[in-house]
Design a protein around this nucleic acid. Sequence first.
DNA 1: TTGTACGCGTTATCAC
DNA 2: GTGATAACGCGTACAA
Lengths: 340, 340
Amino acid sequence: MIKKKIKLKDIAKELEVSISTVSKALKNSEEISRDTKEKIQAFARLYNYKPNNIAVSLKNKRTKNIGVIIPDIVHHFFTTVIRGVENYALEKGYNVIVCLSDESFDKEVINMEMLANGSIDGFIMSLSAGTEKKKDFNHLKEVTDQGIPLVLFDRVTNEIDCDKVVIDDIQGAYVATKKLIDEGRKRIVLLTTQDFFSVSLNRNLGYQKALKDAGVKVKDDFILKLPFMDVDDKAISEFLERTKPDAILSTNEIFGIFAMRVLQKKGFEIPNDISIIGFTDGLLAQHANPAITSVAQHGEKMGEMAAKMLIDRVENEEDEEPNYQTKIIAPTLIERESTF
Amino acid sequence: MIKKKIKLKDIAKELEVSISTVSKALKNSEEISRDTKEKIQAFARLYNYKPNNIAVSLKNKRTKNIGVIIPDIVHHFFTTVIRGVENYALEKGYNVIVCLSDESFDKEVINMEMLANGSIDGFIMSLSAGTEKKKDFNHLKEVTDQGIPLVLFDRVTNEIDCDKVVIDDIQGAYVATKKLIDEGRKRIVLLTTQDFFSVSLNRNLGYQKALKDAGVKVKDDFILKLPFMDVDDKAISEFLERTKPDAILSTNEIFGIFAMRVLQKKGFEIPNDISIIGFTDGLLAQHANPAITSVAQHGEKMGEMAAKMLIDRVENEEDEEPNYQTKIIAPTLIERESTF
DNA sequence: TTGTACGCGTTATCAC
DNA sequence: GTGATAACGCGTACAA
């Protein structure tokens, strides 16, 4: 009952010509006579011939696959990036192999090694928390040393020479903080993650810069650094009680949501009593009540750009002069109901 | 500067042995002498030799890739399924190639055809809206006819003979509706999508069955069928005004969230005035205020089961008697703040 | 215009 | 113990 896939050899045998004639005929080569071409093409269409990707890959040393390694897929931002990559990739005839590092250095290494042995033409990735913490980038170095193109996005590192796509995190935090200052807020606190995340560090800088520019003194105890994994309601609650803020900037979506719920349960009104701005313009921010003003990271655009950079690199490997670029996307402040 | 990847031939040349000796030595074959094995293995380790996946695939006719095609990735449920698939796949040494159909029949076909030509050992997929609407499953049929294993999950069809993983949607809706009835709710309305979605149909059945079992007459105008794409605030708003419900069952997460916001803006208290239960236990339901009681679909478990079924099938292709199975996962009602 | 021969990197069979 | 050879499916330089 199984209709096995037909291959060149089968067509050749059936039509009593050589394999190479079939191969050429199917590529519409000028060398082959109109008659045989038509005969072969008709037969191929009839039996739905499609070249075997693996054999073609082995021959061309091109897989038409791109590997994407992200820390976590249950995370709206990464999800939008994948969608962007997919969009562009499909258009160019590439498949996307997605691997999750699960925020773990080891998994990131394993995944990279698996894919680096011929499965893909290039990588798009965002560093896992484990890798950012450990600051060990040898697996990236090995990949680039082998000449495999790599594009880093969002969570990047200066240690590796390659193409990058990021948003201007400093600017994003600056604009958000400024918005809060302009509203007249005086006690603006920051909810963020630990410093080893490059993005958190930059957002923290932007926050501080905006305060300084407005002549406000930065207080260290107005900044709460939480572990990235399980959110700790209690820590947030205590922090808010201690600091009594009139505005909150959160460097991610989830901390902002948690803070808002804590405050609402205590009877505060958002934004009347307290304004909130979060990073990552995800579904949670959009559908919260009130909807949360957010710094959009434009994940889909980021994915598309990363894919474009990567595929350009893959398809023009002659470049002996790498000339790597870092594209910086401007973040956008999306004003909603959690600010005035 | 580029350190090209080393291959068997390079090792053979360097150590002045034959390629096959190297190959055997690296697989620790008994045929090779201890000395040469050690020498070769040491050399291979030093130069970090790793077999080329593509060549191995061509030889074994096994790619160790599995293709996952889903309608949308910016959707928490599918995202958890992918995570489940990834978990199991990585453990078994498989990569996951993710393709998005974008709810479109055409994209689904294109993606399938791309992957079916040797890129993957089997498929895991959930039907796009377009495919469910069109009821054209030829692309699936072709794939299974070629002997490529296929596991359908969540949005499945009876037209195709293959392994399947679903949750018991009827039961899920039944339990949720019963919960609302037991709370004493009298005017329970249903927010759902159009009938061509198999899951919506079943959830609708469960809702109606629960009402009938409780002796409540089902009113057709208590059921609102919305297009799946862009949610229409106004339609929901009008529906709620017309039906004046004291409880809402939503067959997905997003409609429930929208309904809640509409009601809250009108001054209703959840759950004091109106209870809400949604399907898909996603981030939105968890972090809404109040948090929404939901029917959990156990996406991660579903993904793991689908991956296990697929890989079992792939690795035991001798089975001439297919004997396909449909695994039915029991849904769980997660009680939160939007019900009593 | 068509066909032969070889290579892509690996593995398995068989001969030495 | 080791090595030559064929095969996986395709593409192409070269020969006929």
